[in-house]
């Protein structure tokens, strides 16, 4: 293929490492060495993920955790454009500013739909196994070129601006990947089977309603622990839905699965473990309270969880 997911990671690594150079040189940041080291090493893990052996990768991840965990990260200074500058630029470019911004979703969709299975000279244009991600990478790159031409800014400005955004996200950028590692350890240590046994022991198995209730709430709770409904689904379904709902009550597997998965998504909306959905955006939007996105989502999540439980029960009658 012409563009693979690894190529996108290489681009990520380069912009992150290039940004860290500005951090190392940022005299106004009292922790510029440790902060710079954090972003530089993170860039290294992105850039060389394929070549670094897993054990050393694990050590690198732990170094990142130690730097961030013991206060090594400080926000720097960015020579940001003043409000006046931004207003002047805005008037200069006006609605044209939307073009590169909208190019990202448009080209991502175009790539993931239009370049599916497309080959030139016998090779796929884009990596077919992770088409959406590669399309997003290519789309953002094209949008960047268009943006640079349009604004007549230098590429270095884009790196500096990307560093500004990256540092405002800070440690939260690494959290989703780290949580995925925790999920792996939980799975190999058998946390899932313990949880589904616990839930299985508590519920009255002769009542259809309480089995449905236990399955839906269990999906949500276990998803909150793992941060991911996909990890919760096999465990809870094998533990509760298959033996009790499907085998004992003879309920149809299709709606149990569809609604059970949604019950899990309700859990995702309520947990800091779903960091890429809940914590990263809070950092990205400069929210003071990193849990505010979760707080806003909880009422909707609880109502829909109730709706899911009721729907699954009614459809199972």
């Amino acid at each position: 293929m012409f563009i693979s997911l690894e190529d996108v990671y290489i681009f990520l690594g380069i912009i992150t490492i290039a940004g860290s150079i500005y951090t190392f040189l940022d005299r106004k940041n009292s922790r510029r060495i440790t902060s710079g080291l954090f972003y530089c090493l993170y860039g290294v893990t992105l850039l060389f993920g394929k070549v670094i052996p897993p054990f050393y990768m694990g050590l690198l991840a732990i170094v990142l955790v130690l730097i961030a965990g013991f206060g090594g990260l400080k926000i720097g200074s960015y020579n940001e454009a003043s409000v006046e500058e931004r207003q002047n630029n805005r008037k200069r470019l006006g609605n044209k500013l939307f073009i590169p911004a909208l190019l990202i979703p448009i080209l991502t969709v175009a790539g993931s739909v239009g370049l599916k299975g497309v080959k030139i000279g016998g090779t796929f244009v884009l990596d077919q196994t992770s088409l959406t991600l590669v399309s997003l990478g290519a789309a953002a790159f094209i949008a960047l070129i268009v943006g640079l031409v349009m604004t007549k800014n230098k590429p270095g400005t884009a790196i500096k601006e990307s560093r500004r955004l990256m540092e405002s996200i800070g440690w939260a950028a690494v959290l989703p990947q780290l949580l995925a590692t925790l999920g792996t350890v939980f799975t190999t240590a058998g946390v899932g089977t313990v949880v589904s046994k616990l839930v299985g022991n508590v519920i009255p198995t002769h009542s259809l309603f309480w089995v449905v209730f236990a399955y839906c709430i269990g999906m949500a709770l276990f998803t909150m622990i793992m941060g991911n409904a996909f990890a919760a689904f096999p465990v809870m379904t094998a533990g509760i839905a298959v033996p009790l709902l499907i085998n004992q009550f003879g309920v149809n597997a299709n709606h149990v699965a569809a609604i059970g998965m949604f019950a899990g998504y309700c859990g995702t909306l309520m947990t800091p473990m779903g960091a890429n959905f809940n914590i990263v955006p809070a950092a990205l939007l400069d929210l003071k309270d990193k849990y505010q996105v979760i707080k806003v989502q909880v009422p909707t999540a609880l109502i829909i969880l109730g709706v899911n439980t009721l729907l699954m029960y009614l459809f199972s009658l």
């Binding site: 681009f11 990520l12 912009i15 997003l136 990478g137 640079l148 884009a158 601006e161 955004l165």
Partner: peptide, 9 residues
Amino acid sequence: IVTLPIIGL
């Protein structure tokens, strides 16, 4: 992260 340079710009 791939979108940060263009969005920042």
